[in-house]
Write a protein that binds this DNA or RNA. Sequence first.
DNA 1: CGCACTTTTGATTGCTCTCAAGGGTAGTGG
DNA 2: CCACTACCCTTGAGAGCAATCAAAAGTGCG
Lengths: 280, 280
Amino acid sequence: MDGETRTRKAAARKPAARKPAAGKPTAGRTASQRIRTPEAVAPDVPVCTTGERLDVLGSAPFFSRLSPPELEQVNALFGQASYAAGQAIHSAGEPARQLSIVAAGKVRVAHPTAGGQDARLAILGPGEPFGSLPELGDATYRDAAYAHTGCCVLSISAESFHDLLQRYPALAMAALERTAARLRIAQQTLEQISAVPADRRIAATLLALAELAGRAEGGATVIDAELSRKDLAAMTGASVETVSRVLAEFRRDGLIDSGRRWISVRDPVRLSRLAHGTHA
Amino acid sequence: MDGETRTRKAAARKPAARKPAAGKPTAGRTASQRIRTPEAVAPDVPVCTTGERLDVLGSAPFFSRLSPPELEQVNALFGQASYAAGQAIHSAGEPARQLSIVAAGKVRVAHPTAGGQDARLAILGPGEPFGSLPELGDATYRDAAYAHTGCCVLSISAESFHDLLQRYPALAMAALERTAARLRIAQQTLEQISAVPADRRIAATLLALAELAGRAEGGATVIDAELSRKDLAAMTGASVETVSRVLAEFRRDGLIDSGRRWISVRDPVRLSRLAHGTHA
DNA sequence: CGCACTTTTGATTGCTCTCAAGGGTAGTGG
DNA sequence: CCACTACCCTTGAGAGCAATCAAAAGTGCG
């Protein structure tokens, strides 16, 4: 059975191994070693026009209810910064000075643990906020944020955001609802983790990622975020080895296809059944 | 070793077995079978005076910043109900009509799971809100609430509370901060559950309970909430048997003392070291 | 080519759940 | 008052999942 597996993998993975990366060959982790300042980079680092900024802010969960003129006022309070893939945006423990919103690219948010490994990792796309929101009462960032791909980030100081909340009650309500929604999700996840086995958690995470960062590619959905097994392990609370084993099993069953730093979902329906435990 | 343990337990637990319950002999679970209507009960079910109501509301996290006249206005919007120990306040899945605040006694909040057992159990004391807050966008209660002891509960309709939020920005900010704080706690718990072994989780829970519902008793702190092993198991995400084994171990090490439906913390310092993993 | 990193696979170990059985305790009803 | 019953607590044995340790193969880069 081992030999058969190996030949299947060799046949299935070798030819496809380049395709997912072909769409956008990002610089990878080592970019930060070659490129120091954001300004020095042209190709990989997106920069936002004013129109794009307004689009992004309007699609962010907080500001969706504001009128266009209000949105312009809000926009004026936001600063902008671009980062190359791998660059740190902020570290855990730093004074939490600002709330940020992803404008373009992808941001990786991780929580450092005592063990040295990062836990509770999340990948954020355009329109999604990160930074000091859950820490509104807190003085320091709880999580670290890195540019997962080249990205552009809009930021507002904690004070300005605080002022905005008091000026626009609708904004405060939106923030409250969003935080409540995150709380719900956290509590659901909490249920999951304590009872759901690793393969289900991984299946659920893959589906969520396909939703967030999926790109149609033939009959499958390629997850367009260069995720290593280690990243996936941190996201699901499993070890690297377990992730590798589970992915190998999913591959054998035809649920997914995967290789070095890429995964594509072949059968979302069965994967979803597995994730929810309704597959008998 | 087994024989020694048994004699130790017999010596240590028998004499103390009555003391924790002596302070307030609650009617227990079967009270709801004897007593149907709250009005029919005098001794076990607390009723609030107006002065007590204002105190409770003022100490609740939302209203602490309101002025006394504002507090009176808010107070007028709250209804009041008393429950005997064991009575249901609301069930999960019901339409979420109101936000409630514990005025006196203790309320048990539980989340029913598919397995039939309750998970993520919490015990709330006076001033603590429960009900539809995390479900502000939701139509139904996510959790079930029971009277854990005889208790008095203040309630406000979801609509009235919504109106209050928009009328008093400070209230909205307070609600936001509280929800953010709960989110932080949920995320911390999330970290715990995925990596921390059962004995540490149980130790941490015991310390939290001692903080919330502790009563000094000689050199130790008796946890003044009639918790069964099953309750503790639901709170920590462990099985009843594991809780029993861990408590037996704690007992052997002199960290706690425990018996039928009561636990007292003997050595909070060592327990805390154990909970945080800094005991090498 | 050599180095660093990622991925895979096997073997072992430990923790916790489940199943099973027994003893203790409090309320019930005769 | 006493047996009865239901529930709570404890303990043991066994099984399973996943972490850890260990080793090897594949991949990209200088």
